[in-house]
């Protein structure tokens, strides 16, 4: 039993993703030497500013993008294995739904894609509509839904297969404070039921409240990874905002240290001539 808990559901090592242009030349390095592991009953938060590579990592785990190098395994298999897809629930950052379907029809459609038997599907759809508080709008087309309602239906869709691993990309995006609280409670409830959850978010407070583990991404690299409380102890911080800012500043400073005097001169020349004050400022 202990072994199965210790076996990571998600295992990423030395992952690199380079987006290429039409001619195959490297354009953007979205991820560089990223590693993480998520076990059962764990809530892991991928935190980072916009463009830090969170969604790219999520898409690689879902098999929507292929890694350039390194490995990304889910349930011990390659990410694009079809059998994995029955065991993963995914809530996309954007609301990617057919607007002509009603909430109930949407869940039924995705239920059929999972090959759920009719009775089980029917019960599950109604259970999830109730769980996400969308029963009242079940018969309305998604085109008429608000942003928050679409997130709720998205969450219900992600839970359809009763997945072992739940990947939520900005789950509280567009929700009101009450909705955010409900989603947090739901995540904790799912965690208690033994699910592993990966949350990609740029809302730092969110990860403080519900996550056991953190992966701080900045410009495609991992700034810090580990248990939340351990990271706070290690860096002498009290909340996520402090921790994040501290780490980002430190990284920027170390980048700056790598620049030698010649580089600094170049920067200074570019900044209206060799200004000693400006050089001092940069060095500071």
């Amino acid at each position: 039993m202990e072994d199965s808990v210790n076996t990571p559901l998600v295992e990423v090592a030395h992952l690199k993703k380079v987006f290429k242009d039409f001619w195959g030349r490297p354009k953007v390095t979205a991820l560089h030497d990223v590693g993480l592991s998520i076990h059962k009953k764990e809530v892991c938060a991928l935190i980072g500013p916009n463009g830090s590579g969170k969604t790219t990592l999520v898409k690689i785990l879902l098999g929507l993008l292929f890694p350039t190098s390194g490995s990304a395994k889910v349930f011990g298999q390659n990410c694009f294995e079809t059998s994995n897809k029955y065991r993963i629930g995914f809530l996309a950052e954007e609301n990617c739904f057919y607007k002509h379907l009603t909430g109930e029809e949407t869940l039924n459609f995705y239920g059929r894609l999972l090959s759920l038997p009719y009775v089980e599907r029917h019960d599950r759809v109604h259970e999830l509509l109730k769980l996400t508080g969308m029963e009242h709008a079940a018969k309305r087309p998604l085109g008429e839904y608000s942003l928050g309602m679409l997130r709720r239906i998205g969450l219900a869709q992600a839970l359809l297969a009763d997945p072992e691993l739940l990947i939520l990309d900005e789950p509280t995006n567009g929700l009101d404070p009450l909705g955010i609280e409900e989603v947090h409670q739901l995540i904790l409830e799912l965690k208690a039921r033994g699910k592993a959850i990966l949350i990609s978010t740029h809302l730092l407070a969110e990860s403080d409240e519900i996550c056991d583990q953190l992966v701080l991404l900045h410009q495609g690299t991992v700034l810090a990874e580990g248990k939340t409380h351990e990271l706070h102890q290690q860096h002498d911080t009290h909340n996520m905002k402090e921790l994040f800012l501290k780490l980002v500043k430190r990284t920027n400073a170390s980048h700056l240290k790598q620049l030698n005097d010649k580089d600094l001169n170049k920067v200074a020349v570019a900044h209206e001539g060799p200004d000693q004050d400006f050089l001092d400022q940069l060095q500071k």
Binding site: L62, G63, F90, C96, F97, Y98
Partner: peptide, 13 residues
């Protein structure tokens, strides 16, 4: 609408 992205996360060939 990126529906194809979501469908691609399901076991559909």
């Amino acid at each position: 609408n990126k529906v194809n992205l979501l469908i691609a996360t399901y076991p559909v060939s």
